[in-house]
């Protein structure tokens, strides 16, 4: 296996005295690689990506981003490392009462001091970058809208732009479509993978929707009860693999989301 940009070695996590949420996960990501992390709920997908940027403290194992061991960092050094990792959330996690622009600029907080942040005096380059990103996520002209005045799809696009404001080296995406309707879900997934492709930005995308994962990511990692049970190309996801990940189920019967995802409307 080639030495990747992101390397996870023997990562484990135990919450209190419960069973292991992650059990010795090894995973490596090459530069520019976008992978989908699938698995049943409770499999540890969310814990895994939160262990990468230490929103959750791993119990054992190492996470390397380039030459940095993220698990060894603390305080200021950890914040500097977090600047390099953008994150997109399931329920958008925007600050509702701030404007779209303020939400975008909050992606630069790691780069400015307390008072500049308090007075909203961000460097001109940050402002210009924010305007560019607003255009790229098709929210041009919305900078002074309050975040809670937007629709779900628009909110997620603000979330994407906020993550990209960090000019990250790695993108973590946690169920980006779980709060969205099927059509918006596809648009958001297409936007994320396109923006990653343009930047050569590697990303780990948690997603419970297998057809979406299949469609937008070439490499799929399947997680079950804290262990990786599949790591391979999306066209290798056959019935046997899905059973290994999710357990027994009639995989041929068309599920609701599959029907909707199956015929793509020309947008």
């Amino acid at each position: 296996m080639p030495v990747g940009l992101l390397r996870i070695e023997g990562l484990s996590k135990r919450y209190g005295r419960d069973a292991l949420a992650l059990d010795g996960v090894d995973l490596s990501l090459a530069a520019g690689e976008v992978i989908a992390l699938i698995g049943p709920s409770g499999a540890g997908k969310s814990t895994l990506i939160r262990c990468i940027n230490r929103l959750v403290e791993p119990s054992a194992g190492k996470v390397w981003l380039g030459d940095t061991d993220l698990t060894a960092l603390d305080g200021r050094a950890l914040r500097r490392a977090r600047r390099r990792i953008g994150m997109i959330f399931q329920e958008f996690a925007l600050v509702d009462r701030l404007t779209v622009m303020e939400n975008l600029l909050s992606g630069r907080l790691g780069y400015v001091g307390f008072w500049r942040a308090a007075l909203r005096r961000f460097p001109q380059a940050d402002i210009e970058r924010a305007f560019e990103l607003l255009e790229q996520v098709e929210l041009a002209g919305m900078e002074d809208r309050r975040a809670d005045a937007l629709s779900g799809g628009q909110r997620q696009r603000v979330g994407i732009a906020r993550a990209l404001m960090q000019t990250p080296d790695l993108l973590l995406v946690d169920e980006p479509t779980a709060s969205l309707d099927p059509r918006t879900s596809r648009q958001i997934m297409r936007l994320i993978t396109r923006l990653c492709g343009e930047r050569g930005l590697p990303a780990v995308i948690n997603i419970h929707d297998v057809p979406l994962a299949r469609r937008f990511c070439r490499r799929i990692v399947g997680l079950r009860q804290g262990r990786i049970v599949y790591d391979g190309p999306s066209d290798g996801l056959d019935e046997g693999v899905l059973t290994a990940i999710y357990g027994e189920e009639e995989w041929d019967a068309p599920a609701e989301s599959e029907v909707e995802a199956g015929d793509e409307a020309p947008v």
Binding site: R82, R83, A93, L94, S106, G110
Partner: peptide, 11 residues
């Protein structure tokens, strides 16, 4: 949730 997001950006 917003707290988590802001912390994740390195604030």
């Amino acid at each position: 949730r917003p707290v988590e997001a802001i912390v994740a950006s390195g604030a």
